[in-house]
Design a protein around this nucleic acid. Sequence first.
DNA 1: TATCTGACGATAG
DNA 2: CCTATCGCCAGAT
Length: 96
Amino acid sequence: MPGKSHDELTAFERAVVEVLAKTQKGEVMTYGEVAGEAGYPGAARAVGGVLRRVDDLPWWRVVAASGRLIPHDPKLQAELLAGEGVKTVKGHVVFT
DNA sequence: TATCTGACGATAG
DNA sequence: CCTATCGCCAGAT
């Protein structure tokens, strides 16, 4: 099993899922922003854990504060972002 | 309750 | 641009 299903999440996980559910195509957020929007400022690191454990989330729309893509498969993330019109250069999102 | 882990963030060198 | 450190937080064992 890739990750956890959506029906038994902790309050924190549900909060993060809710925030990501609002993101639109072509929109990119940082882990820190997601944490803050979810009501857990400072929990950027924990947000990474949620994206890693929960399925069916637009994880590719979340990048590090520096714009760096995920260390696991930056190539895939770059492709998914490109598919939504988000440009990336050498593993970094191009903020315009 | 204690300790370790990690798809983070900021800072220093 | 890179690595090293430290602080932070929730989840897992």
